[in-house]
Simulated scan of single mutants.
Amino acid sequence: MKRIKDAFINTETLKKDREMLEKFYLSNVENLSFTNPEGYELTASRLLVDNPVESLVIIPGRGEIAHKFCELFYSLSKLKVAAVVIFARGQGSSTRVLPDRQKYHIEHFEDYAKDVTFVLDKLNIRDYNLLAFSLGGLISLDILKNQENKPKRVSLIAPYLWPYFNLKKPSLYFFISLMDLLPFTRTMYTPHGSEYKKLEFEGNHHSHDPERFNYYHNYFEKHPVYTIGGPTFHFVKEAMKKQLELFKDKFEFTIPVFCQSAGDDKVVSTKETQRFFEKHANDPVPPKFEVIENAYHDIINESDEFRIKSLTKALDFLFKN
């Protein structure tokens, strides 16, 4: 584990050498594009590594883009791990589902898993290890449940198994479903949602690290074409339907899975995530679950004490022999 931990750079190094990281990203990351049978352009960003000893597939969170993985790519290259981040429809640079590119929308949640599997097939990727963040965690569980090309091992970080919300599940789902029934509201932003606006570090619930937080959002300011706004009512309804399906199903874990949830998550319900994984304690291959105490939701952009600890454990779990 020490070898993995030593591959990560700290915040002070970032402050001093951002230019090095940018040059590395431009020289070592290949952007790929594929068109699926429905006509959607699906994109992926692949880390090129000479003589890799391991490979990794990454499924990102809802609004994440390829550049967000720049620092992680750098660490993976030091570990000789070749990696690819796959962006399903509506994510990253892939085709947005609605004419209004800012609205985050999906017609059927299962489309995400179909898109990821399509790109895996195009890249001829089999017997892979999988790392997923936030919404990517929910997509990953759908892949485990329904798709044929499944990973060997999976590490989930702050997976989106239920939103952080005080309303009880039936009441929240009823409200979202009601709004989804109305033609003029199903593609509207949910309350507090809007087109992308730069967040201020002060008072945010995503990261304790001002360096990583501001750099990420400053990148969007310089490249507005990559910005993604809030979700629509129909997206939230589709996600909730999938979440409830997973909670109620007789699905069992048959491969090693490790989930880390953020202890101070204000985006995803850590309590519900823990409940889900505890429910599977007697599965053929019981999943491992852990809380990263005091961490905010965006662990990949968190301060060193949370980020390095979490990612080190995730990679150590994935690449154990």
Rank of each mutant, 00 (worst) to 15 (best):
N124R: 09
K5Y: 15
S55T: 12
I125K: 03
F87V: 12
D180R: 08
E41N: 13
F276G: 01
S177I: 00
L47A: 14
L76G: 11
L178M: 02
E71M: 03
F233E: 01
P37K: 14
L135Y: 08
S27P: 01
Y196E: 06
N166A: 15
P60T: 02
K266H: 10
D298V: 08
I65T: 07
E211H: 01
I139G: 05
T254Q: 02
H280Y: 04
R18H: 07
I157D: 13
V84G: 06
A262M: 01
I299D: 15
D6P: 01
G230Y: 01
D121G: 11
E30D: 12
K320Q: 10
P37V: 13
P231L: 00
Y215E: 06
Y25A: 03
E200P: 04
F73C: 05
A314T: 06
I143S: 02
L246N: 09
T227L: 08
E302T: 09
L181C: 06
I125M: 02
A66Q: 09
K271I: 15
Q274N: 12
R3I: 14
I125L: 09
D115I: 04
E245H: 13
T312C: 08
E64C: 06
F184T: 00
L172C: 04
M240K: 04
K168W: 13
S140I: 09
D180F: 04
R101Q: 14
D264K: 13
E54D: 15
G136F: 02
E148W: 09
N10Y: 01
N166S: 12
Y160V: 10
G136K: 02
L144Q: 08
T43F: 07
I143G: 02
H297M: 09
D304T: 00
L14F: 00
F24Y: 11
V268Y: 03
T185I: 06
H280F: 05
F319D: 10
F118I: 02
Y128M: 07
R212F: 00
C259N: 04
L131C: 09
Y112W: 15
E272N: 06
K309L: 14
I4T: 14
L246E: 12
F319T: 11
E221G: 06
F8L: 14
K78C: 00
F258P: 03
T254E: 05
A158T: 13
R18E: 10
G263M: 05
Q147G: 14
W162Y: 15
G92Q: 00
I139Y: 05
P183H: 11
E22F: 15
M20N: 11
E302D: 15
Y128C: 10
L26W: 09
A82D: 10
S261C: 15
F118K: 03
F118M: 05
F175K: 03
E293M: 06
I308Y: 07
W162S: 13
F174Y: 11
S269I: 06
A66R: 10
D17G: 04
V53L: 14
Y25C: 04
A83N: 10
V267H: 03
N301Q: 15
N204Q: 04
A82S: 12
H105K: 08
